[in-house]
Design a protein around this nucleic acid. Structure first.
Lengths: 213, 213, 213, 213
DNA sequence: GATGAATGAGCCTTCATTCAT
DNA sequence: GATGAATGAAGGCTCATTCAT
């Protein structure tokens, strides 16, 4: 088994090497300026080699996207295992998303890249794999909501739907950041984000909550 | 003045002609595959002519985006002038957005394209103009909320912020449509959308609303 | 004659107007960035109108070149009529050329444009006209040399040839200005120019002159 | 090492191939009509390939210019190593320049093109490299003058400055060749050139020399 | 005479992908 | 397995010139 193992290890190593290069390019040049030859150079490999491990540029992007999703998932999982109340967990997750988008703008860009493009990039299988990566995030949020409902922190609701709504809403607000210097010039984007998060929490808890800012 | 007028009309006609070509290209090839020469061909004009009327490709995109925004604005304005309650207005607007995204997917794509791309496409002036176009939509929503607050249909809230939140959330949910066959396979996207809209309305009205589906 | 005269005057006025626009463009944008439409805009005329008065872009350049040559000619003529010795005249002319190239870099660029391009721009007639404009400068220098020879300021020489040599040499030195920050980094270009001028004068006067700096 | 060597050779061969194409284009179409696609066609390579070997069109131009400069340098170096007197060397170099400009008009055009254009073509690095190539020519002339001064063939002078002056003057005279059918119609350009060269030599030697033709 | 909209060939450059070695 | 040279379509854009009005 020694040989096979070594082979597998080497293959894995190359994969990482390529991904490292791609990531470096992503971080240093931005998603719009990544080229295969650039990745190859950073990875200190031939262009052809890249194509041996990835079918296309988009497949690399996909891997990067999964990285990003995994990173965020990891973040919120750490929140999830905290011994705190469900509502507190959700609030922290909401804020973590904001932080993630700021601190890992490049990962956020990649995720956005696929989410907003009308192009179809992937084979159904690949798409499935990636989307499931995102799905895990939704699942975790759903779990927390379910817990909250169970322990009466939250009102009765469709946890799955609310999870999607929760995340989608924050994502939507996040995207409007682009307008912060124009249409939203009078407002502070982060304040709007916090406001939205508060609304989302209020929606889960019920009660007179709309007057908060 | 006959001549001057005619000239002006012709100029306007050309503009439409070009935009028609661009729109056709957009609808048939998708936003990622529009080329100036393609537009020129569709419009039955020389490439140079296009550049006589538009300074750059982006300016055409901007015009298209404004078209889309104007179209949607027009739709919701018709709702706004209806003699109906504010909450009903908002619900209709929410649904109109859903319909708009489905029926004018290409316009939605353009808007999305610029909203989510990390690239900077527009000159500040142009961006400002477009964003303000989007801002009008937010303004209208804000007005309705303000009215609703005034006539006690809605609870006290920061109308501006809630307007942004309202629209952003729906937009966010809309974007997740992409996942409907993967991560959201168990759910129906439209149902989720409706659910979200309901939450958003509930947030405005207060009361125990979370149990709705 | 009234009408004809007015016509002629108007025509002349338009010509000036165009040339004014072209000159403005030349001075503000440099010779490599002059476009017909730019000229038209500056001149507040239609592009077509320009083509009514000039056959081509190059013809405008030619006119500009003549302007430049005339300007320089005018400068040296003022020197010529000074009641000073011939050698002094030449030195002043030499220095005037240096000053001209510095202060009217744009005119110098135009002149250079035609002098160094391998393209053939003009009809023989036009070329003849322009070159003769340059010829007048050479003629004047020749006259001064002839005078100097006559009054024994200068040694016997072929005045015409020396005039050409004189001007050509200064022109050549002037062109090497481009190297002042690279190949000639150790030297000061103006000093080299002065040195060259001194050599040229020495050549006319004879005597042990090479040791000057 | 066979493979590596072959690779390197092939790479070199392609470089030559491209330069050959470019040179052909230069010679057949003139510097103002060289296009990358033209070069590619002549070189029987894809456009992309050209860009694999050269970063830009300008880099090709630079290479061509260096070729020309090297060619001329080589010519005068052969003269330099001849066991002849310094003055004779300079005269031969002067004549070699004339011959070079006639026989390699296209190289001369390239050099001229960059020397007289007001455009900035090159990155500082590239410009430096080229100018230094030209500088070597000046250096060699300077050396000869220094030798001449040392062995009393020439009078005391600033060798560096005289070298620049020497070359610049000849270059200037050469450029006026364009006027040979107009302003200089009475004269023979080559005669003027010879006259100028004689003056330049006389300036180095001193004595009554102006009367020569 | 004056206009300015229309042209379209042409420009330089990029880059994902392939394939012979 | 790895290489990297070669590709060539495609891209956005410019601009001197023309011509119908």
């Amino acid at each position: 088994m020694g040989i096979k193992e070594r082979r597998a290890n080497e293959k894995q190593a190359r994969l990482e090497q390529i991904l490292d290069g791609a990531r470096e390019m992503l971080f240093s040049h931005g998603i719009d300026n990544i080229s295969m030859s650039g990745i190859a150079k950073k990875a200190e490999l031939g262009v052809g080699t890249i194509y041996f491990y990835f079918q296309s540029k988009e497949e690399i992007f996909a891997a990067l996207q999964e990285e990003g999703l995994a990173l965020f998932y990891h973040t919120i999982q750490k929140i999830h295992i905290c011994p705190i109340a469900c509502d507190e967990k959700l609030v922290r997750i909401g804020r973590a998303f904001y932080t993630f988008c700021r601190n890992h703008k490049d990962y956020y860009d990649v995720i956005n890249y696929f989410l907003s493009s009308s192009k179809i990039f992937f084979t159904p299988d690949l798409k499935n794999k990636i989307d499931m990566s995102g799905g895990k995030i939704l699942d975790l949020i759903q779990q927390i909501i379910e817990q909250g409902v169970a322990d009466n922190t939250f009102k009765q609701t469709d946890a799955k739907k609310y999870a999607v709504y929760f995340f989608a809403a924050l994502h939507g607000v996040m995207q409007l950041k682009k307008l912060e210097k124009t249409a939203l010039a009078q407002e502070n984007h982060q304040t709007i984000y916090e406001f939205s998060l508060a609304q989302l929490m209020a929606g889960l808890k019920g009660g007179n909550t709309c007057s908060q800012t």
